[in-house]
Amino acid sequence: MKKMLLLGAAFAALALSLPAQAELKFKPGEDPRFHWANYDDLKKVDLKGETLTIFGPWRGEDEGLVRTVLEYFQEATGAEIKYSSSENYEQQIVIDTQAGSPPNIAVLPQPGLIQDLASKGLLTPLGDDTAKWVKDNYGAGQSWVDLGTFKDKDGKPGFFAFPYKADVKSLVWYSPDNFEEAGYKVPKTQEELADLEKKIIADGGKPWCIGLGSGGATGWPATDWVEDIML
């Protein structure tokens, strides 16, 4: 398999192969909750003897879930899959690409980092056909294509990042009854939001209530919220 780096919207850690004969969690074709057409199509692709390296951010329980999904690809195609991660995966992927030893696929959540790698010629474009597939099959269509499009080292735009997993974060909830009672209007711009915040404070209220219960995590809810405000 050609050594190239393809990115989805992430090898300091030891790369571990999936078992050659994995016990699939759901038997293909028998569980009606799933659409098995893609799995049947994959069975037509013979990748026996090939190795697919994937580098991503998932560790612990999340890694276990990802491996459960990857087992279906391995079972259908015959390819050997080696998945690896690192606590500092954002820094590690830079080191690996610059050293000429990138994984075939990296999963990265930072568009800025993807742009930096693309501008240095370290990524392989996915092509117009893949971009068209995303446009035709993703609900947000062209916006997802735009999000995965970056300029290469020659300044030419290319589709480099396939949106694999998206999370909805930092939603702002409000009580319509309370707004109606106080005479507040839902803001449509950042400036209107700032004005409303000042008005609520002037009225003796507290404009924000932020949930930061992240268990044993390192405060990512607050980080995400601040990043959204900055963006």
Rank of each mutant, 00 (worst) to 15 (best):
G29S: 04
A106K: 06
K165L: 11
A118K: 09
I114T: 13
K120T: 01
T189L: 01
L47R: 05
N38A: 03
W133S: 00
D203A: 11
G60R: 05
G216W: 04
F11D: 15
D129P: 04
P157N: 12
D152Y: 10
K43Y: 01
Y184V: 00
N38L: 00
A76K: 01
A222Q: 12
Q92P: 08
S170Y: 02
A12M: 13
Q91P: 12
T223P: 00
W144E: 09
P57V: 07
E80D: 11
T68N: 05
F26P: 02
C209V: 12
G211I: 01
E180S: 13
F160K: 10
Q92A: 10
G49E: 04
E197A: 05
G183Q: 10
Q92V: 08
R33E: 08
K43I: 05
A9N: 13
D46L: 07
F34A: 06
D40W: 12
A99E: 11
V226Y: 06
A106F: 02
I229G: 01
K188V: 06
M1K: 12
E181F: 02
Y39L: 05
A10T: 14
P157T: 03
E50I: 00
A131M: 05
D116S: 14
Q92S: 10
P207L: 02
K165S: 08
D195H: 09
